[in-house]
Design a protein around this nucleic acid. Structure first.
Lengths: 206, 206
DNA sequence: CGATCGGTTGAATATATTCAAGCAATGTGG
DNA sequence: CCACATTGCTTGAATATATTCAACCGATCG
């Protein structure tokens, strides 16, 4: 159902705003007045549950739209993992613009696919595959172009652990194993460098 | 964003069709010409991956709409887990009817939430919680009304196992444990009877 | 410099998987 | 109608895997 015309809608939007590292875009439970189209940077969203458990609901990048809600309140909290530029989309804009509605619908479907792909990662039996798939997921958008790929990792290991549903120690061990095997390099703790894509895909089970 | 008017759109739709147990609604990869609104019955959707692994992508019930696609092909295969009635929605209908578009958008957002809730189940550490949450998920729509709840289970244990990313033996063991503890009864292998909701919710970690 | 924080690593424990056997229900052929 | 085979489910025992708890390390900060 390719009934969209991205270029047209984009031109009608307001100019992007700048958000810095760690800035909170919106809080879980707040009235969902705005959605945001990401122009640059990386965003992480998470939910807090009663009992204190936290579930990371996703990592988002360029052209993703976040803050989609059908009812009044944001379902999760969104924070910047890097500096970035965002295009706010108000509810009023949304209501008036059928093109925008279509775009949001397409984006929702895409996020649904993405969530299903996460589900696939999570049902993998061994943590090796989960972590490998996670790295590939983050690398995906940047993959085209140059041979060596630099990935922006979440702020701490626990973020990855919460996303994958494993302990932070397990994340450490698996990342260390990939490093030992020469599959991935880590210039620093916030970034990863995939050296051997095929090997990583093999670990992920593809 | 409650901008929908279900009643209005429903009335404009064609009369439901009947589908019997095990009927295939559509196949993964086929051209996505139709979506379906479920009027009654239970539907299971799954994806097959190269390598033979299968991922159950969801279980759907009354008022869910399945077969949503932004591009040409179905992402998964949908089969009936029971007899049921379905309302076909053609792509043409969709294109012409803004109410329907809004409804589909709302449905996509809802499914996204549902997928995130599945993700939450999958990140639970112990299989006890996964299976408990799975039963609660299936029970949710019917829950209102009577105190005792009858659930239609998937055709075989392996379906549940594939959905939760555990082995079928583990599913057996956990279900047996719930039965032993008097939390759930099993009149037969295709149905479950939740006796003690609070206890089950406790296992699920709520 | 000492304290703190996140990350890594090691050892013991808990948990799920795997492999294998047994069971109950269903279906088939004589 | 009764063996017999088949299928899916359950249960048990051994193994593999991840978690937990604890110690250690390196960087950052007061």
């Amino acid at each position: 159902m390719a009934y969209l015309d991205y270029a047209e809608t984009v031109q009608t939007q307001a100019t992007p705003i700048v958000k810095l590292l760690d800035a909170v875009l919106y809080h879980q439970g707040d009235d969902a007045t705005m959605a945001y189209r990401i122009k640059s940077g990386v965003v992480m969203a998470y939910q807090i549950y009663s009992g204190g458990t936290r579930q990371i609901t996703g990592f988002f990048q360029q052209d993703d739209i976040i803050g989609l809600e059908v009812d009044g309140a944001y379902a999760d909290t969104a924070v910047m993992l890097s500096d970035g530029r965002l295009q706010p989309i108000s509810r009023r804009q949304f209501m008036q613009d059928p093109h925008l509605q279509n775009e949001l619908y397409a984006n929702a479907c895409e996020q649904l696919r993405s969530a299903q792909s996460l589900v696939l990662s999570l049902t993998r039996k061994c943590s090796d595959a989960k972590v490998a798939e996670f790295l590939l997921h983050l690398a995906r958008p940047r993959r085209c172009g140059k041979g060596r790929d630099l990935i922006v990792l979440p702020k701490c290991r626990q973020d990855i652990a919460d996303y994958l549903g494993v302990s932070s120690e397990t994340v450490s061990r698996r990342l260390a194993a990939f490093k030992r095997q020469g599959i991935v390099e880590f210039p620093d703790r916030r970034s990863a460098h995939i050296i051997d894509f095929p090997a990583l895909e093999a670990r992920a089970g593809h």
